[in-house]
Design a protein around this nucleic acid. Structure first.
Lengths: 349, 349
DNA sequence: CATTAGCACTCAACGACTTAGAGTGCTAAC
DNA sequence: GTTAGCACTCTAAGTCGTTGAGTGCTAATG
């Protein structure tokens, strides 16, 4: 592909991204000063179509980019952009609320990203299996009831209300709590197994009636931790784009977005490997219904550990450069916040 | 309004509810055996229009019910209906998951209601000011960090992570926790004021550096409790109805639904007084954008205390009798669940 | 005197047809 | 290699008549 073709392709895609209308040869000749006549561009466009970068909705219409076209654009043509000062400001303001749990942070981040990009944004904590328990506590609530609280190194706090025998004194509960805390904190979720539980059982003596409810509470908390939380914001932003101007499409999309499981799977699938930003365009997404959408995702880290994933989903005709800038900015912003929240050191305690 | 007019009005509304098409005199004559010719019905329909119960989209179309028509229908014409066995079964199944916090219950209830009615469902806990604190506990997490946990009588559990001086020993924290718990539990949110805090301060001695963070944690929790949680499910159900077949409308509606504050206000406004089911039709709603929607809400209770509100929002052309049945059923179902969850006795402890 | 058959009238919805214009591909000239 | 020119294509938009569901009014009817 020669330089001129690249320029033309870029012009077409830029144009299509901002107008959502098929781009004709004359438009390219006029808007983007290439010093070429529409006829020449027409020929080039025919070539580009043959090469698979463009398609025509119908013979007498302009061209629109194919997924392959977008891919080339994203990889080679697109010029990087930066967030505007205003945008950075509004991110700063929005992130300035008091945040003391990871899920709050994710919600806020998701909100901000959708606001800035005008697309749909997602944030999740997929890598929970390696979570290390930081504290396990049993808190007396009232006669016959107690609360099991589990806190992980990644800043997640979960609790589970349990019923216990009414005769049990708060003091006893606290000592039991200490045993649990001592034995379980520092372990990853996966490391909690029968031998560990046996050990606790031994230390506690024969008080089955307390052990079991607490153990249930702990498992309940762990289950909660394990079921990935996903935050999704700005889904209705999509209704602003002509791609979703008929209700059928809109409904299909929104139906997908309601399925949190699916979203989390999508986010998980993307990549756990690298620290880079991954772009999936149209059919590159595994989900059939997302073939008209693109995904820009990345992981966020604390220290060197990957904590979770954030991403933007928009129509394939999205402003890739802007979204890229936003995702990148947020990635770094989150690193700071997460580290402040849960510490750089994730080795255990 | 004579008996015959009522019959005709009812037929028209029933028909319109199920078809969403303007109803003509011939349709009424044919479908509903009234032993009258279309001409007679035509005359009656003209009367009903003059009386304000029906309107005509245009001269040569059938009639559709006005808000006043629906109101009359709901108050006097509609025949009560019951949930089917299938529906009751599916509610039972859905509610059979482990639920140990009020918010989980609300989420589940909301989900079920939207599934059964095919409309949008809401559930909220609006009456938090009278919440009584059941327990306030400070839990050590790691050096320099602790978790404040607040539990209310209405089953809400909130927590807030705080930073404290690293030199503070867990044992000390527990004793402080006990002071807080003793002094605060049993109080309503409103009753926590300066004198109470002074008292705690006195008991603790001059350890300001511990008092303040904990106090902040407690206020944080209380703020969380106070900001009404609203659960909303099935918003995209609305996209199935012709009323929302153009994206503009759909977007407007969904935009409203995203604003949780607004929803909670709507739910609060409805009625705190009675134990009955309240129906708001079209313009009876204060919100301008909801003039095309109807709201069926009720409060749910534990013992004799009103805990919160649940409701269904749908197009004015909704299946009122079915929705009514569903809301009523869920109201009772919830009473059981809530009482199991937080006890019938809400006097304090 | 309420009911109804009959009829003229209205109006949205639909399909057929036309037109306008944006865009293409090809060819021949520069 | 580039471009002007031209014939061709196809959608979008507009026009127009037709259809049919529905109305309102009037006069006949039991």
């Amino acid at each position: 592909m020669d330089e001129r073709k690249k320029k033309i392709l870029q012009s077409i895609i830029d144009d299509y991204i901002s107008t959502a209308e098929p781009v004709g040869s004359r438009t390219v000749a006029r808007k983007h000063e290439l010093g070429l006549s529409s006829a020449t561009i027409r020929n080039e466009m025919a070539d580009l179509e043959e090469m698979g970068y463009l398609t025509q909705p119908h013979t007498s219409a302009g061209r629109i980019p194919s997924d392959k076209g977008y891919r080339f654009y994203v990889d080679q043509l697109m010029k990087q952009s930066e967030l505007t000062v205003d945008e950075i400001c509004s991110i700063k303001t929005a992130m300035d609320t008091k945040i003391n749990e990871l899920s709050q942070l994710l919600k806020q981040v998701s909100l901000v990203m959708s606001k800035i990009t005008k697309y749909t944004s997602m944030a999740a904590i997929p890598e929970r299996k390696n979570s290390v328990l930081k504290a396990v506590q049993v808190v007396p609530v009232e006669k016959g009831k107690a609360l099991v609280v589990v806190i992980t190194n990644s800043g997640t706090i979960k609790n589970s209300l349990i019923s216990i025998s009414e005769s049990i004194l708060p003091e006893y509960l606290i000592s039991v709590s200490n045993i649990f805390n001592e034995k379980l904190s520092g372990l990853t979720i996966e490391q909690i197994n029968m031998p560990v539980i046996r050990e606790i059982e031994l230390l506690m003596g024969p008080s089955q009636e307390v052990l079991m409810p607490i153990l249930n509470g702990v498992t309940d908390c762990i289950e909660q931790i394990d079921s990935t939380e996903v935050f999704l914001e700005g889904a209705i932003n999509m209704l602003n784009y002509p791609e979703f101007s008929n209700v059928e499409r809109a409904r299909e999309f929104l139906k997908l977005m309601v399925e949190k499981d699916l979203i989390s799977r999508v986010l998980k699938d993307v990549n756990a490997e690298k620290d880079e930003i991954v772009i999936k365009i149209g059919h590159e997404n595994d989900i059939e219904e997302m073939k008209e959408c693109s995904l820009v995702t990345t992981t966020y880290t604390a220290g060197n550990v990957v904590i979770g994933t954030i991403g933007i989903i928009g129509p394939t005709r999205m402003e890739y450069s802007k979204v890229l800038a936003a995702v990148n900015f947020m990635k770094n912003k989150m690193k700071d916040h997460v580290e402040k929240l849960i510490g750089k050191d994730l080795s255990g305690t």
